[in-house]
Simulated assay, not measured.
Amino acid sequence: MAPADGRLVSISHSPQARPREALQTELDEAIIRAAGSHRRAYALTVVHVSRSDHSRVQSSILTSSIVSQTGLGALDRLPVELLLQALRHMDMQTLFSLRQVNLRARQMVDSLKEYRAVVSYGLTAYCALLRMRLAAHVTLLGFYRLLCSQDCAFCGKFGGFVFLPLWIRCCFECIEEDPETRMVTVAEVRRLFRLSRAEVGRQRACLTMPGIYTTGLYSADKSYQRARLKLVPYFPAMKEFGDRLETGVPRSRHQPFWDPVHNFMASCELPYYDPQTQTVDYGISCVGCEARAVEGNPGQASRPAVAPWDGIFSRDNFLKHFKGCRQAQKLWEASPEAALEAIIKRDVVHE
């Protein structure tokens, strides 16, 4: 799993890995330490769960090796392969409830690789889904597939976050700037489209969590939200009920009250999990590019030329970027770990 500084780490290493491959991996990690960084502070300005909360549930989300003496009733009549497949298609709320039935149920759920990956590397998002009453809308397979994807659904860049109501991976910038992530209160949607109680009930509403959230991409201000608000995505409601907007009234009447902080209250960090290499990636930004942007815009108070979230890379893409970024290479050359590269080149020559 990821260490305290948030950088990508290898979860397992093949015992057959050749020494040169191990050295290359060590070199890549050294380059990332010298010229890359992960802005974990952004994860604290969206929905987040404290480490102490995680530690309190760790023992209950994965079972021990105790042999169960109970069964699952009628479910035990199904072939094991069919039962496991059915579990994969269950929503996270149902799985959460099923695991509380007995030890046998827990062990069946916990035997799934998808569940183990979700609770190991996507625990913050899982907790958020449960607490915000959205878990019934996300299946285990849907959770796992999003965990194993890495691109923002809106702009294609590395997406280290998830927009919870629609369960879409996104980058930090698109949380605020894409129309599909706009959140408004239930009361505002009812006012705009004159919805009935039943129509409101069909909207994918979420109950926000108290916490400290950013007020905007280019704002240094934070907002402590004590109350639990009931929010809904504006875009789906607009597509379904947009024809109800009154004609002949001022356009301002059609514009919903929108607070950017609501978007961040409906999003949380979600790392990328690579099932082939069994690594997790929170995204890496180039310190060299950021330093060059600051030098070119000293004292700039408005939107920076390169915002920290603009250049977030996956591990592999950062290493490709590094080869063409002279500023990042200078940081590496000045690093005491740069001598490692010479050792690898020497070993390659002797092979």
Rank of each mutant, 00 (worst) to 15 (best):
6 G>T: 08
7 R>E: 06
8 L>S: 13
9 V>K: 08
14 S>K: 04
34 A>S: 15
34 A>I: 11
37 S>C: 11
43 A>D: 13
44 L>I: 00
45 T>M: 09
46 V>W: 00
48 H>F: 04
63 T>Y: 02
67 V>S: 13
67 V>E: 14
71 G>I: 02
72 L>C: 09
72 L>F: 03
85 Q>G: 02
88 R>I: 03
89 H>Q: 15
89 H>L: 15
104 R>N: 06
104 R>K: 15
105 A>E: 02
106 R>L: 06
109 V>H: 04
110 D>H: 12
111 S>Y: 04
114 E>R: 03
114 E>L: 09
116 R>M: 11
125 A>F: 01
130 L>R: 01
134 L>C: 08
140 L>I: 03
146 L>A: 15
152 C>A: 08
152 C>Y: 11
152 C>T: 08
153 A>C: 13
155 C>Y: 05
156 G>S: 09
157 K>Y: 02
162 V>I: 15
173 E>V: 07
176 E>K: 02
178 D>T: 09
179 P>V: 05
183 M>Q: 15
187 A>T: 06
187 A>Q: 13
189 V>C: 11
192 L>C: 01
195 L>E: 01
202 R>Y: 00
207 L>V: 05
208 T>N: 00
210 P>N: 02
213 Y>P: 07
213 Y>H: 06
221 D>Y: 13
223 S>W: 11
228 R>T: 05
231 L>D: 00
234 Y>A: 05
234 Y>W: 14
236 P>L: 07
239 K>H: 10
254 H>V: 00
255 Q>S: 08
263 N>D: 13
264 F>G: 06
265 M>D: 04
265 M>G: 04
266 A>K: 03
267 S>T: 13
273 Y>V: 07
275 P>Q: 04
278 Q>P: 00
278 Q>V: 12
278 Q>C: 13
281 D>G: 05
288 G>T: 10
291 A>Y: 02
297 N>Q: 11
298 P>G: 03
303 R>T: 13
304 P>W: 14
304 P>H: 14
308 P>V: 08
309 W>Y: 15
315 R>D: 07
319 L>D: 09
321 H>E: 07
324 G>R: 12
326 R>N: 07
330 K>M: 14
334 A>L: 10
339 A>L: 09
342 A>N: 10
343 I>C: 10
344 I>S: 05
348 V>I: 14
